[in-house]
Design a protein around this nucleic acid. Sequence first.
DNA 1: CGTCGAATCCAAAGCGGTTTGAGGGGTTAT
DNA 2: ATAACCCCTCAAACCGCTTTGGATTCGACG
Lengths: 341, 341
Amino acid sequence: MTLKELSDLLGLSPTTVSRALNGYPEVSEATRKKVAAAARTHGYAPNTRARALATGRAMAIGHVIPISAKHEMVNPIFADFTAGAGEVYSRNGYDMLMSVVSDDDEEQAYRSFATKRNVDGLIIHAPSLNDGRIPFLNDLGLPYVVHGRSSNATAPYAWVDVNNTRAFQRATELLLDLGHQRIALLNGLEHMDFAARRRAGYEAALASRGINPDPSLMFSGEMTEAQGHDLTRSLLARPDRPTAILVSSIIMAIGVRRGIEELGLTLGRDVSLITYDDDLSYFRNGTDIPVYTATRSSVREAGRRAAQMLIDIINGKDSPTELLLEAELTLGMSTGPARRD
Amino acid sequence: MTLKELSDLLGLSPTTVSRALNGYPEVSEATRKKVAAAARTHGYAPNTRARALATGRAMAIGHVIPISAKHEMVNPIFADFTAGAGEVYSRNGYDMLMSVVSDDDEEQAYRSFATKRNVDGLIIHAPSLNDGRIPFLNDLGLPYVVHGRSSNATAPYAWVDVNNTRAFQRATELLLDLGHQRIALLNGLEHMDFAARRRAGYEAALASRGINPDPSLMFSGEMTEAQGHDLTRSLLARPDRPTAILVSSIIMAIGVRRGIEELGLTLGRDVSLITYDDDLSYFRNGTDIPVYTATRSSVREAGRRAAQMLIDIINGKDSPTELLLEAELTLGMSTGPARRD
DNA sequence: CGTCGAATCCAAAGCGGTTTGAGGGGTTAT
DNA sequence: ATAACCCCTCAAACCGCTTTGGATTCGACG
């Protein structure tokens, strides 16, 4: 069913039918009703491609999902972020176009979005401290929103981020208040902006209590369960082992727990743990009492906010283009006072 | 840069340029080279929308991601499946269009894909035993591939699935061989096809050893960490507690482990556990020795296969439209012989 | 009764490609 | 020299929609 067929059926011109359906004022309310009814009964909806061609707007947002070439790993928060963003897109009539590429040719993917003109905007993930995509996209001239920030970027850009520094500072302070002095940090890759900020928060909290951060207690790497486990095992095997561990991802925290328990120790009593919690839908941190004490911020909500910001930008609204979400610190069963040796 | 601009630049007609770029034989090799070079240096790529309109092919595949309305939960395997499918799409020049909808109006989403003609095919997930989407999509006339099967479907359809029955039968047999008699099953929602098949496999194995399945050991529900934990706690509190647990998801298995250890028991010694493992990239089951004994099948590979099958169907190749993958049973550290009481 | 304006509706020109059907130029056979 | 033929190339139509710039109708007003 095309517009022309529908208009023939109604004895109207395509113009009128198009206007009726798109809510233009030049058409009488009576015809509008008639047209709308006919469209519904005949199951007519405008062909997206034709409409996009005519309007110059693709009504689609692009997401590039880079796959770490070496580890073949998908970022686990991606599903939830996507779900949040997707909600907002649907509500606003946008499609979500996803491009899965190995992280070497990510730029190529953006360029291709731009030249093929099949999206109106982009969301980019996981920025590094000095992310080359920002100047690149500024040149490209396609609106975009960054999920996260890039501290060393010079050009302005729109972003939605969590206050990672504050979150880790507060978490560290809580551990210090509980009497912990040797606190390990199992962080993500620190060339990533979020990880660098988390470390800064951790160090700031230590510094404010006059404690020098001990490099041998700080780790930066892929946030996998296995990493969490292995690092914990080696940390706890040391004579000067830490009494508390600060972890950047709940998945890693699961590995930490396994490591602790393999040694016959008890989480929250022998060793304390605070983790960052993205509030992933398939891995909720307990139902009533949280399993882990955590700094939590919903990545799905971040997805919603980023999507809305991008749509606003595309539509030329001049709403704010920077949004800093705060994480909440929730007490769970993985923390307790430091024990005297 | 449009085709016309490029052709003006080259002093050729749009026709010739288009043919040159699309590999038609009517154009000389010399011009083809020249055109290709110019396209590259000027960064020209055909506008997807215009091309789609002209050819009648969208060069895009639709995925509908239903969000469980009550639990706001995204299927955790979705990210990895998507990553696998996306690889194949990129390689074949297809885009991936994702539509996130509440699971009530999923049909509406398919219908909208069909009438708006912005995809050439669909992949559908998580079929139930008698999935209404299959007859619906057969009517709709848009090619599709099902990830999973729908046992009670009458009409034919293309699918990629894992042999869930065999996987759970073998897992149960292994536990029986280890001397376990009381084996609990923590399954997914059994109106879902995969869960029904897993249960059938479990029951078949018990039956072949003359054991009557005990309904009080069988559970069907959302496969969350919390569920795994809570069910394990209540199972192990019983006087006639099971000595082994069969679990449908590695995420749930993590909860089971937590429950076991909270009771001061040891996994693999006091209680055995076998889990289904989708080989999720962000939750690999151990590095060298698997943490959990598991029936494993890569959902990412399933994504690749399903995508390839769909593309073949769209292109009218008559390759097979049914694919049953086998899961491998890998021995990890969560199983051991049943202990005499 | 003629004129004006508002209210409707329409024809036609794009949007940026692909594709059909035909034409132009250069070789070779007659 | 002409015809026959092969290569290349092109003009124009078309895909399905939006949108500009009229055209038409009708009631109101002077």
